[in-house]
């Protein structure tokens, strides 16, 4: 008799414990929403990645389409080499444009992809050619000040 009540309580405990884990995984975490389906890798080179970190999001039109796998420095031309793990459901044209953006004024940085018009798609392992570096606030300010002083020359390279 006492054994069955213990069994029932342990059963209840284990079930709600696992429900709590499930709640954390699906409702609090992003396991349900952003699980990448059979991912493929893409690469991109940036002159400056600013504060971008591994595992940051890759978004296109605001939708998360992948995550950053790793960031390394290419010691030949001193560019940042970003390896991206992309969701297999989404394919992008060859002339896709990759920019480093910030969500909000102080938010995390992510890579935004803007598809071009090329009929051919990027294959796994391809390198995105067209990239734009992160906006570094200090550079922006100093450029603005030089601009004000010299009254001319476009800022963006």
């Amino acid at each position: 008799m006492r054994r069955t009540t213990i069994d029932i309580w342990v059963g209840v405990f284990v079930v709600i414990g696992f429900l709590a884990l499930l709640f954390l995984a699906l409702r609090v975490g992003n396991l349900g929403s952003s699980k990448l389906q059979s991912p493929y890798l893409l690469e991109a080179r940036f002159d400056n990645i600013g504060g971008l970190k591994a595992r940051a999001a890759i978004k296109s039109a605001g939708v998360v389409v992948g995550r950053i796998e790793s960031i390394t420095l290419d010691s030949k031309n001193y560019q940042a080499l970003v390896s991206m793990r992309m969701d297999d459901r989404y394919r992008f044209p060859k002339d896709t444009f990759a920019t480093i953006n910030t969500s909000g004024l102080l938010g995390e940085q992510y890579i935004g992809l803007e598809p071009g018009g090329d009929p051919e798609n990027l294959e796994p392992g391809d390198v995105i050619k067209k990239t734009q570096s992160a906006v570094v606030l200090e550079k922006l300010i100093s450029q603005f000040m030089f601009n004000a002083a010299e009254k001319g020359t476009s800022g963006d390279k």
């Binding site: 405990f13 284990v14 709600i16 414990g17 696992f18 709590a20 884990l21 709640f23 954390l24 409702r27 609090v28």
Partner: peptide, 15 residues
């Protein structure tokens, strides 16, 4: 066995 389940319940209740 109990400890991870309790921690998960604690976090879930906290959220």
């Amino acid at each position: 066995i109990s400890m991870p389940l309790l921690a998960a319940l604690f976090s879930a209740m906290g959220v």
